[in-house]
Amino acid sequence: MTAAEDDASPDPQAPALEVADLRFDYPDGTTALHGIDLRVAAGERVALVGPNGAGKTTLALHTNGLLRAASGTIRVAGVTLADATLREIRDRVGFVFQDAEDQLFLSTVRDDVAFGPANHGLRGTELDARVDAALAALEVTHLADRAPHHLSGGEQRRVAIATVLAMRPDLLVLDEPTAGLDPASRRELMTTLAGLDVAQLIVTHDLPMVLELCPRTVLVDGGRVVADGPSDLLLRDADLLTAHRLELPYGLAPR
């Protein structure tokens, strides 16, 4: 269990994420989410797939309050998202952005990884220990004193994950973690994700990764949950995939 141990978690058995009837309209009036229901159990790894513009990232941004819904509720590890709990929710949800260039903004990797826990109030040796553990978990200890913007894409992605893992989240939300990585970096990242003991919601178009990593897939299209079930079943339903502009790569699709 990687739940925060320093402040009393209300309920360690609670699902990592519970989204109920979530609705969201963009400022221009278009509705992006039409009542989403989603539940991620503690420690579960779930893929969130769907075509471009389906509302995947919009939904993901709601999980730590970066977007606020018009109606509906979000609960993270039993804590309901509200103005008063915003800070706690952000400590519990680790959000890994698609563009690491946005996530890594300090001048050394170490400082960037320390940023989150330091905002949480950690100082000194306690902070150092937290940072070292996160760096080790992502196998980027040797990059600690480097400048984040001079790293390769794969290294940046790992460091970005380390920056949120250092906050000991209950839920890791990753936006397209394998996009733009070479096959070896993608493989390394997948191995790392598989080894992390924390609930994960992975927004992605990388369906082979989903088959390998995520027992469960949630398919979103047009701001609605279209399908939710075992990845093996869902992703081998060629008609379902085609209807929602998805497909498995050649060779993986059932004939």
Partner: peptide
Amino acid sequence: ERVHAAMRARGFDGTMPVLTE
């Protein structure tokens, strides 16, 4: 704006924390 969102996602509330002793 995106960088600021990423900072808020990690608990940033307007003041930079002390990172190195």
